[in-house]
Structures are given as C-alpha cells and as structure tokens.
Nucleic acid binder design. Structure first.
Length: 829
DNA sequence: AGTCAGCGCGCG
DNA sequence: AAAGCGCGCGCTGACT
C-alpha cells in the first residue's frame, strides 16, 4: 500500500487540506513518534525539544501520524482511525521501529486498540514487534499547562527505556524467608530495627470475606546500625512453606513488627486494616501516598508511577488479581520491591515536607492522625437497621414494579413500527431506564417533543435525546394536555425508586456484614481540595463485578428519611450528627472581610435566611424552610462565580423557580452590591493565582492551578473560580477533620464509649453509648466550636463557629438539640 | 464476559 | 462572549 492522495477510506478527505500525508525521518529509525496527525511546526518542535532534552538523538527518530489527513478542527473518531490503520501498519513494516512513542488518544488507539490515555500513559505497552509508550498530546499540554510535568516525565521515561539507561536505584538483594530458621532470624532482625517500610499482598477484595488471606508480607528495614535489609515472607501462597500455618507465623512475628518505631507504607490504611483484622496491630507513621498528595494534589499517586518518575526505576508489575497462580518467586520479588521503593520515596517526600514547614505541620498534626482515626472508623463500620432495610427493599421494588405495570399500559406490542433493535437485529426489551427503548417510546411513539440532546455521536449523528430529570420537569409543565401526560409523572416517580433499588437498598443489603454493619473506605487523597471521598477501595474497583464489593459512598446517602433512616446506632447506643453550621460561608466572610457578611455572623444571624428575606422582600421571621433552601443555592452559586444564565437553569432544575435572564442578572448585580467585599476578594484570589499559579487555605493547604497559564480563556476562567473556591472548601473540610481528631482524643482520654462513623464534608457522625451521651455531647460541640487554630497554625478565626447537634436512634430521624439540651443532657433525661 | 465512555444523579 | 466548586457510582450501549 502506498500513499494515496485520492484516498476515500474515511470521510476525513472531504474536509482536509492535505489527504494522506506520509511521515518523515530515516528509513532505518529504531524509534517512531506517532501523533494525532501530521504535526504542525509548533508541536513538532515542542516534541523534538523534549526528546533532545531527554537525551535522544534525532537521527534515529521517524515521525508520523495516526491518521494521515490534516484535520485541525476535528478529531478523528475511532472508525476513521481504523480506516487509516493500513497506512500506519505499512509504515511500521517499512521502518521497523523497536520503540514507539504515542501522543494522544488517537495514536494510542491506532497502535494498541486501547482508549483512555490517562489510564495507559507512561508505561510500556508491549506489542508484537515493538514497545509503545503513550502520553497526552502536545496540544492538550499547551491547553492545560497543568499536564506539562507529567508529560515531560512520560517522555523522559520513554527515552530512558530506549537508551536502556542504568536505573538510578539498583535493585536490592531480597531475602526470601523460607525456613523456620530464617523466620527466627527475621524476628531477631525486627527487634533491632527502628524503621520499616511494609506492604502485604492479599487474596481478595476485602479482609472481611470468609476466604480472605494474606498471601505474603514484605519489608524494607533499617537496622540500628543503619543497614538496609529487604525481606519477603510467604504466607498463604500455595508454594509457601507456611501455607497452612500462616496465621501462626503472623502471630509469631507480629509483636515485634508492631513495636518498630517508624512504620512507613504506601496507602498504609489498607495494609493496616488487613493486618489488624488478623490481630497484628500495625500502624502507619508515614504514608508516602498521603505525603505525595499533600505536596501536589494533582500528581499521579500510584506507587509505580511515582517510582518511575521520581526514582527512575523500571516497572515491576505482576498480575495482582491472580496472585495465587503467580509463581511465589515473582510474588515475593514484587512485594519486596514495593516496600523498597516506598522507602526511597519516603526519603524524598520527607525532605520535601521538611523544606515546607507549613505542609509538614499539616501532615503531622492532621493528615497522619486522621489516617489513624479513619482506620478505626472503617473497621467499626456503620450500623444499619436490618428490619427497616428489609422493609425498604420490599417497598422500593414494589413501588417501582407497580409503576412499571402502569407504564406497560401505554406500551404497544413488541415489534411495532420503529421499535429499536439490538446490534444483532433483535427487538430490544422494554426498559424504562434511560435506554434506546425509552427514547423511542417517549419521543417517537408517544410523540413528546425532544427538548435536549446529548453530545453528537462519533460518526457525526445527533446525540441521543436527553431524558434527564430537568427535561422531564419541563415536559411535566408544558405537556399537560398531552394524551399520555401521566406517563411523564410516572417516569419521574419511577426514577426515584429505581435509584433507591439499584444504588441504595440492594447495595446496603449486599454489603452488610454479619453484625449488620457497613464498611466504607474514606480516602484522604481523593480530592484536590482536601475533602475526603468515600467509596470502594481502589483495589476493589472491578467493573462489571456485582459481588463482594465493599464500600458504599456514605457521603451521598439520600436525605429522604426513607433511606437515611436505615442507618443508625445499635441498641444501647445513640446516633449523633454534628454539623458545622454554614461553615463555608463563614469562611468566605472570614477571608473576604465583607462587612455585610461579617455583620450577619457577628450578630448571630443566618445568612441563608437573610438572603431569602432580602430576595423575597419579607422579614426574616417570615422566611420558610423552603425559602431558606432556595437562598442557599443563590448564596453558594454567586459566591463561587456563577453567572446569571446558570442561575436561571439551577433555579428551575432544583426548585422549579422560573426567572428570566434579565431578572437573574438583576439579582446577581444586587447580590454583589449587597456583599461588596466579595468583589475585591475574588479579584485578590485572581491576582494570587495569576502570580503564583497556586492558592493556599489559611492553614496552608495548597491548591496548584497551573491551568491559569493556559492560552484558552475558558480554562483560565475555570482556574480562577477554583482559586476562589479552593481555600474555602479546603479550610472548612480541614476544620471538620481536625474536629474528628480532637474529639476522638478526648473520648479516649475520658474513656467515653463513642465511635466516629464518618465525615460528610462539614459534618461528623458518631455512635455514642447511651450512658456517655451527657459527657460526649458537650465535648463534640465545644471541640468543633473552639478549634486550636491559633495555637496550631497561627490563624485567628474572628468568626463565631457553630456546631449543630442532632441525635436519634437513626440518622434519618435524628432531632436537633438546643444548646441547653446539649449541655444539660445528663440532667434533662 | 469484561472494558470503556457518556450520562445522569446522589451528597456537601 | 461566557464560565459556581468538590466528589462516586449505576446503567446503557458499543466494543473486543
């Protein structure tokens, strides 16, 4: 196959200026660079500079493209990439490169068939006759400068692979513990070390499943004489000499293991939970993942990419999903290298933290103590009322099925004209979820108007008609006279029950342990602002798998008492929710120094009620709960940079309120007239992020915003809004985290039987023994309202902070306590 | 049977 | 010219 300037294999030839442009470079090159399309001068020199900097000789590089047509303004979609592949294959056959560097998703797809550049970048993807390393496209780096450092690291990695450079850290000698004698020696060693970096390999998804076992345990130890020793201990692996006695072996070395002063791990909460489950009370005094995140919240945090980028070591991955069928030798080597590289990352991150004392303080005072507390929270779990759950499951399914039955009356016979078919040509099943069937039925068959569409398809077709809630709401208001009007109302009601069935009640049931508790994972590295995220352990994220999934998101339990009322405290205990009142807006007032806002809080008023009374023109005493909720959307939206247009849509979608664009513009203007200080604060944040490329919360948590240097105005504006929001969201959630730590400490000190069950951004949930409520409630409230911010961080919070407490047998029906009740609980009952 | 992207919606 | 911020996850349909 030769270059064909008349090529019509795909539609791109219709719109391109150059059809089928061949690559260039020496015909015997052993390195090939493949990008999205024949590169423009700018990108070409950007790439060449990077490669030369990394030490690659351009004389051995051939440059070409995934699709051979020049298509500046449009992306080539997968069908077009496929159509163009023969040309690329022909080129590869001729040049015969050993190494190929792929830029962007299109090149990745053309070379490997994978898509999803963020998942595949920066690693060797071995193909038949050559190796591929992929990274993001140069265009995406200029658009999002935040990607630049990762992009450079990928290119450096590629070049070091091509050149076969010696690794900067040599692979250590690993002692495999295979005999009783060696086990004894290991125990002796453990008694003589002050630092260990440790890691385990496990059988399954969760330590709570009945067949859970630890396959191997490894460590990198530093002896009191300063010697590094790397060892790996086989446990449950089939080839392990300790296969049948692995728990005894663990028990044998456990006491010496836990006594080691410095315990380092990467995402150690995971390992610590497993070890504690098997009675080895291991801790984490330095977590390299958490350090990496605190130092740069945007970076990749996996051990492998960190080791690649910072230590320059080659990959050492094995298939961790199938450890029991992997030779023991490989498992032990893998396990040991994890600990060895973790130890070296520790040395780097420790130094970086020492160089940034504010971050070091956050790390020592907040991050690591919180990590320890969360181990307890996750292992303890949250109690779910089984009787209520059984009932809720029944009702949810009954309601949904009853609605389905109603809806079926409006469904014609299968195979009616136009009824959608599967790829194989069979008629699809009736499906009232957002499916092809529903779209056909609603818009074609029943004839409701299409109000909104999703993104256009890859082949250029129009996007599918949207059936999202806002669209249904619009139909509900505008189609009253439609003969099938009731279908709309039924579908909206159905969506709620369907979500309950699929996402909540059945999940809760599947995840409940034998003590009716649900365990989730709280990530301290899940968000760029420092909030926690909640859900599954990364290791347990298996797509398609329906069984044995641990972790539900405890931060998105619907407020509907029907669902929230399922969670609670077991008999003898009380559920307590402690909520920071309007904390983000208090922080906004604190940071912006806006006089009106400061006044509202200093007078002890409620800002949402104040806004509601102001917008509606009624006295604050007449503001209803609903009005206040609406005002909340106004406050948060405008404070964080929402425009009038977005305000119109959220007001309708969330509250069914109709504003014209003009009215919204007026409200927005009036809002900033009222809170003038917000203007200058917004501008200040913009200046700071423009100048430094980052912003900080009052206690020093950093948000890096390299996108501020983008050439795209939209991207810049986004970074500016993030610069406004981040310090607020970050500070508010850190206040919550610090509260948890201090409350736990106080509980321990006073022997209070109380357990923190989790954090929901600006709220803490507890389960407290009934006998200790009188003592615990004031501790919770006092701690949250009087955080040692001045002592710990030199921050003077001249702003009243209020914590509202609710108690009940269940989360969903917890009742708010008055201040009086909080402080006199013991005597009031 | 597993993987992936897009959509949509739960929470703060 | 216009632009709220921060998350996790279930379902569908296309693909391998």
């Amino acid at each position: 196959m030769m270059r064909d300037s008349e090529c019509t294999l795909c539609k791109l030839h219709q719109t391109t200026e150059v059809v089928c442009q061949w690559g260039f470079g020496p015909k015997n090159a052993d390195v090939m660079v493949v990008s999205k399309m024949p590169n423009s001068g700018n990108y070409q020199s950007l790439i060449e500079d990077e490669l030369v900097n990394a030490g690659l000789d351009m004389g051995r590089v051939y440059f070409t493209a995934a699709t051979k047509c020049r298509t500046f303004d449009q992306d080539a979609k997968n069908p077009q990439i496929k159509a163009c592949r023969p040309y690329l294959e022909e080129e590869i056959q001729r040049v015969k490169p050993r190494w190929i560097l792929a830029f962007g998703n299109e090149a990745l797809y053309a070379l490997t068939g994978h898509s999803g550049i963020t998942n595949y970048r920066g690693q060797v993807l071995a193909q038949q006759e050559y190796n591929v390393v992929a990274t993001v496209a140069p265009g995406s780096v200029t658009r999002n400068p935040g990607q630049k450092s990762g992009w450079q690291a990928d290119i450096q990695f590629f070049v070091s692979q091509v050149l076969g450079r010696p690794d900067s850290i040599s692979i250590p000698k690993i002692s495999a513990i295979r005999t009783r004698q060696q086990l004894k020696t290991l125990r002796k060693l453990l008694r003589n070390v002050h630092t260990i970096s440790y890691d385990i390999e496990t059988t399954g998804d969760t330590e709570l499943s009945s067949d859970a076992a630890i396959v191997s345990l490894a460590g990198t130890c530093i002896t009191n004489e300063g010697k590094e020793v790397v060892w790996a201990l086989p446990l449950y692996h089939p080839e392990s000499p300790f296969r049948n006695s692995w728990r005894k072996v663990l028990k044998y070395i456990g006491p010496d293991l836990v006594k080691i002063k410095k315990q380092i791990a990467h995402n150690g909460k995971y390992d610590a939970k497993w070890l504690r489950h098997f009675d080895v009370n291991m801790g984490v005094s330095f977590d390299t993942l958490l350090a990496a995140h605190l130092l740069d919240e945007n970076r990749v945090k996996g051990l492998k990419p960190l080791a690649r980028i910072l230590l320059g070591v080659p990959g050492w991955a094995i298939k961790t999903k199938d450890l029991l069928n992997t030779p023991l030798r490989s498992v032990l080597r893998y396990n040991a290298l994890d600990t060895y590289y973790t130890y070296h990352l520790y040395k780097i991150f420790r130094q970086q933290l020492i160089d940034q004392p504010r971050l070091l303080r956050l790390y020592k005072l907040m991050i690591m103590p919180a990590n320890e507390d969360l181990i307890g929270t996750e292992m303890h779990g949250i109690w779910i009322d089984r009787e209520r759950l059984d009932n809720a499951i029944k009702i949810s399914f009954d309601m949904r099925d009853a609605i389905d039955e109603e809806l079926m009356h409006h469904v014609p016979e299968a195979g009616t004209m136009g009824w959608p078919v599967t790829a194989k040509g069979r008629p699809v099943e009736v499906n009232f979820n957002a499916s092809n069937f529903l779209r056909w039925w609603l818009f074609d068959y029943l004839g409701f108007p299409v109000l909104e569409r999703g993104k256009d398809k890859e082949n250029g077709d129009l996007g599918s008609p949207s059936v999202r809630e806002a669209v249904m709401l619009e139909l509900k208001q505008s189609q009253v006279d439609h003969p099938n009007y009731e279908v709309i109302k039924l579908l909206m009601e159905r969506a709620k029950w369907q979500k309950y069935c699929s996402t909540y009640v059945t999940r809760y049931d599947a995840l409940r342990d034998e003590d009716d508790r649900i365990h989730t994972t709280f990530k301290l590295f899940g968000t760029v602002t420092g909030r926690l995220s909640s859900g599954k352990e990364d290791a347990e994220k298996v797509t398609g798998g329906k069984t044995n999934l641990r972790g539900v998101n405890l931060q998105q339990v619907p407020r509907d008492p029907f669902i929230r009322g399922l969670f609670g405290a077991p008999p003898g205990f009380t559920f307590v929710e402690a909520d920071f009142s309007q904390v983000e807006l208090r922080v906004v007032a604190f940071l912006s120094r806006d006089k009106t806002m400061l006044g509202i809080y200093q007078r002890g008023e409620d800002i949402h009620a104040a806004t509601a009374s102001w917008v509606l023109g009624i006295p604050q005493s007449k503001v209803s709960k609903e009005d206040r909720k609406k005002a909340k959307a106004v406050n948060f939206g405008f404070v964080y940079g929402m425009g009038a247009k977005k305000f119109v849509s959220t007001a309708f979608e969330k509250y069914e309120l109709v504003f014209t664009l003009g009215e919204a513009t007026d409200i927005r203007r009036a809002f900033f007239d009222r809170f003038r200080g917000l203007y200058s604060w917004h501008n200040r944040q913009r200046r700071i992020v423009q100048q430094y490329g980052r912003v900080q919360s009052p206690i020093g948590r950093v948000r890096h915003l390299p996108d501020i240097y983008s050439s795209d105005q939209g991207v810049v504006a986004e970074a500016e809004r993030q610069a406004i929001n981040s310090p607020v969201q970050s500070f508010a959630s850190d206040m919550n985290l610090i509260s948890m730590i201090l409350i736990n400490r106080e509980f321990v000190r006073l022997g209070i039987k109380g357990q923190c069950l989790g954090l929901v951004h600006d709220a803490l949930n507890f389960e407290i023994h009934n006998d200790h409520l009188g003592l615990a409630l004031p501790i919770i409230k006092d701690t949250m309202e009087n955080l040692p911010l001045r002592k710990w961080f030199g921050v003077d919070m001249d702003m009243p902070i209020i914590s509202d407490l609710k108690i009940g047998t269940h989360w969903g029906d917890a009742k708010e306590l008055t201040v009086e009740e909080v402080y006199n609980f013991g005597t009031l009952i």
